[in-house]
């Protein structure tokens, strides 16, 4: 195995040097790429392709009919609006949190910093049940909000937004934090000596540099939010046209044995996710280029 691989790698050096501009003596291109593609194909692409093939059993008209039916459109609207709001709120607070973590010192900072990743690690169903418990009208916070502001936050779109803020927060903090950390404070100092005030420095210098990262965090949070199911379902209320999300539509269709309908919606959601991911990767590419130039 070990020997074989080196031999193979030597044998195809000629071929590889055509493809590769760098690392011409690196071994293992073929086996690693081969394994990557094989595994990707088996675990991800073949299963996902079933969505495409199953949807092909529908005619174009049927597909359009399913996707543009009022209720499905409404669920897309609910999912997108709540994900946008959730990601936006998380972006604002995530930015502030990242800022305080990087720039200030206070007691308990390390613990809080570790806690940020909780939504990554906590199972979504647990998160959903717990959030519903806290924010329902008789829960700790739900009651408080009800009494003081008269706002009901659970079992309506606000509930969905709350669950999505929870899910989104680490995406934003963890994308913005490293960029703020790497940020060269010399530029601030220079601006300061030139007479710029704090707000000007923030708006003109810091924010533009952090913005791409913030946008990436926002996009990641949004992409995740649109597909989120477990944590949303317990707090959403699930009323048609009001608080019914796309993943729930898929489940509902499935349970009525409408496999084609379910896959049509799923495929649409998948395409949207894929486009979002492409955009995110472009954004990251852009950031890398920017930081390379700096």
């Amino acid at each position: 195995m070990l020997l074989g691989e080196t031999v193979t790698s030597q044998r195809c050096t000629a071929l590889k040097s055509k493809i590769m501009r760098q690392s011409y003596i690196m071994p293992g291109f073929r086996p690693t790429l081969g394994f990557t593609l094989l595994y990707l194909g088996l675990v991800v692409l073949i299963p996902l392709s079933t969505l495409v093939f199953k949807s092909l059993t529908l005619s174009w008209d049927d597909y359009v009919h399913i996707i543009t039916s009022k209720r499905v459109l409404a669920s897309f609207r609910v999912s997108f609006v709540t994900s946008l709001l959730g990601a936006a709120v998380a972006s604002v607070f995530g930015f502030i949190i990242a800022w305080t973590f990087v720039r200030y010192n206070f007691i308990g900072k390390r613990i809080l910093d570790a806690l940020i990743d909780l939504p990554f690690a906590l199972p979504t169903a647990v998160a959903g049940i717990v959030l519903a418990t806290i924010y329902q009208p008789s829960g700790y916070i739900g009651r408080l909000l009800m009494q003081t502001l008269g706002v009901k936050v659970a079992y309506n779109p606000t509930g969905i937004v709350i669950a999505l803020i929870f899910i989104s927060l680490p995406f934003v903090v963890r994308t913005v934090q490293p960029v703020l950390q790497e940020f060269d404070t010399k530029m601030e100092e220079a601006a300061s000596t030139l007479g710029a005030n704090k707000l000007q420095i923030f708006i003109k210098i810091i924010f533009p540099n952090v913005f791409p990262a913030l946008l990436t965090g926002f996009a990641l949070a949004f992409a995740r939010g649109v597909g989120e199911y477990g944590s949303v379902i317990f707090i959403a209320g699930n009323i048609p046209y009001v608080s019914e999300i796309v993943p729930l539509m898929i489940i509902t269709k499935l349970e009525q044995y409408e496999y084609a309908g379910a896959t049509a919606i799923a495929l649409t959601l998948l395409i949207i996710s894929f486009i979002l991911l492409l955009v995110i990767n472009l954004l990251q590419h852009w950031i890398r280029k920017q930081s390379g130039q700096l």
Binding site: T124, R224, G227, G230, I250, A266, S273, I280, N281
Partner: peptide
């Protein structure tokens, strides 16, 4: 991008496929 894909696929779809 393809490797990232499962991150943003709805869990419901991951089961469905």
């Amino acid at each position: 991008t393809l490797i990232d894909l499962p991150f943003s696929v709805s869990p419901v779809i991951s089961g469905l496929i």
